[in-house]
Amino acid sequence: MVKIKNIFKENLFALILLALFIIVPLAVGKNADIHNIIIYILIYAMVGEGWNLITGFAGQTSFGHAAYFGIGAYAVAVLGNKYDVVPWAGMLAGILIATTLAFLINFQLFRLKGHYFAIATLAVAEILRTLFSVWTYVGSGDGIKILFRPDNKVLWLAIDVRNRLPFLYITLALFVLVFILCKSLENSKMGFYWKAIRESHEVAESIGINPQHYKVYAMMLSAAIAAVGGGLYVQFFKYVDSVVFSLDVSMIFVLVTVLGGIGNVYGPIIGSIIYYTLDLSMRRLFGGTTSGINLIIFGILLVIVVVYQPRGIMGIFDDLVNRRRLAKEKALQRLDTGTPGEGSGGKA
């Protein structure tokens, strides 16, 4: 009993968010705009969570996550169209392929440090983009339009455009799984090790961590999650072409995570919510004219956040929390210096 109560308390924020995501789609009735936006938010937040593992936790910046996202999308589309494979199985295939690719190339890529690694990840995505734009098996320049028209809706994850709700809730469920996974990873041996690696390879090595191994694990997990996101994406839009591998797409994952708070498991979802609600409301309020005001305003907002608080929205709150904590600690310290024994400096 107490344990459940504790879990509830610790994750209150997450549970409130979850409740919102469940209730709001129902509350807005037939509003396709809101349904679409929520599906968007969840898919990109999901991939953001994956991206956060390698860049936020392990500290290795990846600018090419669209590579794994795109693989997930194409896997579902190609297998579904050509071999009548159920999207769930298509997503599994996407996970396998993306993870294998992550495993194979990152052993080499991780020899590069910092910025060079980031550029290399970009190159990987670009290579895939060029390849897929000429490879006839996957539709080359035309891309792939999802052609399968299933009967059993839940099994096939089909979207009935009159009612997007089933797809929305399935996406939500998958996102919750990913979120729980990332949260528990954060508190696990892997999470600790990643954070150590992020701060200092040397420290990590000195306490027995092999940075290579753990970076590759992070990359593989990250790729798997991105592939799931891609599989959902293609089913939603029913169309994918080589543009899915472009830098623009990779930067969406970066953007929503940085906006919300990189290195924080709540970052991607917060960032995604803010980004897409702002984006849509800008477009509805100012769009439709040819002035592009919405894009300008949005760009300015992004710049403000990134310049003034690089750790994103969660960073702002973390700082507030830290300031309070520091004040508390200082107060404690002042108390301690009066008494002997355990306390400041510490005695053996």
């Binding site: 200092s200 000195s206 027995g208 940075p211």
Partner: peptide, 20 residues
Amino acid sequence: PTHEICRKGITRNFQIVKTL
């Protein structure tokens, strides 16, 4: 490599302190 040596039972600290 350092991490292998550490696993065998030799651990070091750093001159310029590196707390996480």
